[in-house]
Simulated scan of single mutants.
Amino acid sequence: MRALIQRVRRASVDVEGRRIGAIDHGLLALIGVEKGDSEARADKLLHKLLHYRIFGDAEGKMNLDLQQTNGGLLLVSQFTLAADTGRGLRPSFSSAAPPDEGERLFAYLVEQARSRWPNVATGEFGADMQVELVNDGPVTFLLET
């Protein structure tokens, strides 16, 4: 699994003009599910999402995690993160999980996140989503499991 995470001051996701998820300060995590991913990889990714130290402490150093800052977590499925961009000028999605498996693992990740953290919002798997964010920093990392 891959997650492109961005430290945000706020973020939201709309589907068909309707706001379906929003957070104030915290993490926006765009999630890509690849062939061969599993619940164990989702669990490992969730651990990183909740404990990755990218928020500033009193001295401005990245020493605090999402839980220590009481931040929100916005999870948005994005199969394009599984693209192979190594050759040519058109991405290949041969490494992406099939849609039903991607949806199952994304739903598992969301379920586990909600059982461990109270402030979780999501997009809608497979929908045409409009995501808005104010990147704080900017701070952006690619996490892989």
Rank of each mutant, 00 (worst) to 15 (best):
H51K: 09
G17I: 11
V33A: 07
I23G: 10
I31S: 06
R9Q: 15
H47Y: 07
I23R: 04
V15M: 13
Y52F: 15
L46K: 10
E39H: 01
H51P: 01
L30H: 07
L50Y: 11
Y52W: 11
S38E: 02
A42Y: 01
R7F: 08
K44N: 08
E39D: 06
I54K: 05
I54A: 06
H51G: 08
A40E: 12
V13P: 08
E39Y: 00
I31M: 04
I54D: 04
A42L: 11
S12L: 12
A58R: 12
I5K: 01
I20Y: 09
V15R: 09
K35H: 09
Y52E: 13
I54S: 05
G60I: 11
G60A: 13
E34T: 02
V33W: 01
R18G: 09
A22Q: 15
I5V: 00
A22L: 14
D57N: 14
E34L: 03
I23T: 11
E16Y: 09
L46Y: 08
D43Y: 14
E34C: 04
L27P: 06
D57G: 04
A11L: 06
D43M: 14
K48I: 06
L28V: 12
L28E: 01
G56Y: 00
V8M: 09
I5H: 01
G21K: 08
Y52K: 13
R10P: 05
G17S: 07
D14C: 15
R41P: 00
L27M: 14
I5E: 05
R19Q: 13
Y52S: 07
I23H: 12
F55K: 01
E34V: 02
R53L: 05
K35R: 15
E34P: 03
Q6C: 06
A22N: 15
S12V: 09
A22Y: 08
E39C: 06
I5A: 00
V15K: 11
D57K: 05
E16F: 14
R18H: 14
G17C: 12
G32P: 06
H51F: 07
V8Q: 08
K61P: 01
I54C: 12
K61M: 08
V13D: 02
L45W: 02
H25R: 15
I54F: 04
K61T: 02
L45K: 02
A11P: 03
A22H: 13
G26D: 03
I54T: 09
I20A: 13
R10C: 07
H51T: 12
R41K: 12
D37H: 00
G21T: 09
A40N: 09
